[in-house]
Simulated assay, not measured.
Amino acid sequence: MPYAEAADGARIAYQLQGDGPVLVLLAGQANNHHWWDGVRDGFTGRSTLTIDYRGTGESDKPHGPYSTEGFADDLTAVLDELAVDRADVYGTSMGGRVAQRLAARRPERVRALVLGCTSPGGRHAVERGTEVRRSLSWSDPAQTRRALLELMYTPAWLAAHPGPYHTLGDPDMPRHARRGHLTASDRHDAWDELPGIAAPTLVLHGTDDLLNPAANAPLLAARIPGARLELIQGARHAYFEERLDLVGPLVLDFLDRPDKKVDSR
Rank of each mutant, 00 (worst) to 15 (best):
189 D>P: 01
142 A>C: 08
120 P>K: 07
109 R>H: 10
181 H>T: 00
196 G>Q: 13
219 L>N: 08
127 E>K: 15
195 P>K: 03
144 T>Q: 13
126 V>L: 08
193 E>S: 06
202 L>P: 08
108 E>Q: 13
105 R>P: 10
102 L>P: 04
141 P>N: 09
133 R>W: 05
99 A>Y: 01
207 T>M: 11
187 R>M: 09
169 G>K: 06
165 Y>L: 11
162 P>K: 08
201 T>D: 08
203 V>S: 01
148 L>A: 10
113 L>V: 04
103 A>F: 00
123 R>D: 15
123 R>T: 15
192 D>Y: 09
201 T>Y: 09
174 P>L: 06
125 A>I: 06
128 R>Y: 03
160 A>G: 08
205 H>Y: 05
140 D>Q: 02
100 Q>V: 05
210 L>P: 08
137 S>M: 13
146 R>A: 14
141 P>H: 01
161 H>N: 14
136 L>R: 00
214 A>C: 15
217 A>I: 03
116 G>A: 10
177 A>D: 05
197 I>K: 07
145 R>Y: 00
196 G>L: 14
146 R>K: 13
143 Q>D: 14
179 R>T: 14
149 L>K: 00
193 E>L: 09
184 A>K: 02
127 E>Y: 11
120 P>I: 10
209 D>L: 07
148 L>I: 10
174 P>Y: 01
215 A>S: 11
147 A>S: 13
146 R>N: 09
180 G>I: 00
95 G>C: 03
146 R>D: 10
146 R>Y: 05
131 E>N: 13
155 P>T: 03
208 D>T: 08
95 G>L: 02
152 M>T: 09
156 A>L: 08
199 A>S: 10
209 D>E: 07
145 R>F: 02
105 R>N: 15
181 H>S: 01
97 R>F: 03
161 H>I: 04
132 V>N: 02
191 W>R: 09
110 V>N: 01
125 A>M: 12
156 A>D: 14
209 D>G: 10
138 W>H: 12
191 W>S: 07
121 G>L: 03
182 L>S: 14
102 L>C: 03
173 M>S: 06
203 V>K: 04
206 G>C: 03
163 G>W: 02
134 R>I: 13
185 S>A: 15
119 S>Q: 11
124 H>K: 13
220 L>D: 07
170 D>V: 09
187 R>G: 06
119 S>G: 12
188 H>R: 04
94 M>I: 06
111 R>F: 06
124 H>E: 15
150 E>W: 00
120 P>A: 12
167 T>F: 02
219 L>I: 12
159 A>D: 14
120 P>R: 03
150 E>P: 05
209 D>V: 06
138 W>N: 15
173 M>C: 13
177 A>K: 02
122 G>W: 01
117 C>P: 13
153 Y>D: 05
116 G>W: 02
216 N>R: 07
117 C>A: 15
216 N>Y: 00
178 R>W: 04
113 L>H: 02
151 L>V: 11
117 C>K: 05
134 R>V: 14
126 V>C: 13
122 G>S: 04
114 V>G: 08
219 L>C: 11
128 R>F: 01
114 V>Q: 09
201 T>H: 05
145 R>P: 04
125 A>C: 11
135 S>C: 07
190 A>D: 12
191 W>M: 12
159 A>H: 06
97 R>D: 10
195 P>R: 00
105 R>V: 13
157 W>T: 05
170 D>S: 02
